[in-house]
């Protein structure tokens, strides 16, 4: 069965979706990714969707699920590289993906995750009882 590879890069996981995302594949990705977050203890997940020519409500839901599930496992999700046409369509569809962080490309997404982790550490240092 087809699978979307999940790469571990330091503290983060990187998923690059390069194929047509049919529903079963998206669900498998959701499972695998959450499993990997648990196994590796990663603090951040980067999902590169720059090769995706559409994101419909089902894929949007999967992305939202991944973000929500990672978040309760203390990992942040950043969706990177969304095509302009896809962004416009998602807004028109009524799906602003509110719970999900976004970045222009992998590099910026990585920087975002790093800065958020740093901010978390700073917070911990400042008020230890958090």
């Amino acid at each position: 069965m087809e699978k979307i590879p999940i790469l571990k890069m330091g503290k983060f996981l990187l998923v690059t979706i390069q194929v047509d995302l049919y529903d079963r594949l998206a669900l498998t990705l959701e499972e695998d990714l959450i499993e990997m977050v648990f196994k590796t203890g990663s603090k951040g997940v980067l999902i590169d969707i720059s090769a995706l020519s559409i994101v419909d409500s089902f894929m949007g839901k999967i992305i939202g699920n991944i973000a929500g599930m990672s978040s309760i496992m203390d990992a942040e999700t950043v969706v990177v590289g969304m095509q302009p046409a896809v962004a416009i369509t998602l807004i028109e569809l009524g799906l602003p993906l509110s719970g999900v962080h976004t970045a222009l490309n992998i590099e910026k997404g990585m920087a975002l995750l790093q800065s958020r982790m740093k901010a978390d550490l700073d917070d911990d240092e400042n008020d230890g009882d958090d």
């Binding site: 020519s53 559409i54 994101v55 419909d56 416009i88 369509t89 569809l93």
Partner: peptide, 13 residues
């Protein structure tokens, strides 16, 4: 490209 994407997304839905 934008209209294409909108139509394909609607198709998918």
């Amino acid at each position: 490209i934008v209209n294409q994407t909108k139509l394909i997304t609607a198709t998918s839905e």
